[in-house]
Amino acid sequence: MQQNIHGIPLDWFIILSTTLFCIGVMGVLFRRNAIIIFMSIELMLNATNLLLVAFSAYHGDAAGQVFVFFTMAVAAAEIAVGLAILVVMYRNTKSVDIDVLNRLKG
């Protein structure tokens, strides 16, 4: 169990998390439903978490995994507030389409 990372190069983890991050970016640009956009943001956060854990494990430094812990805490708070904003938006406009928010331009 000790040498179990040796088989996998670090590059593979970098490429995997880059791919997941880019899929998240594509989701934000591609969809108009605000809930799906939130989910894409979660996906991007998870991609960065994976990168932090990979670097932490290969570097032998536990601080990276503590950072992931804090990222999860901030993400949970962000999602709670964001979904509350979404509910208020639906109550006022009867849709979760982000193009409705054009009127914020004033």
Partner: peptide
């Protein structure tokens, strides 16, 4: 170049 890809010391997680 990923010079930091040093051998792994187990059990940090």
């Amino acid at each position: 170049d990923n010079a930091i890809a040093t051998p792994y010391q187990g059990g940090k997680g």
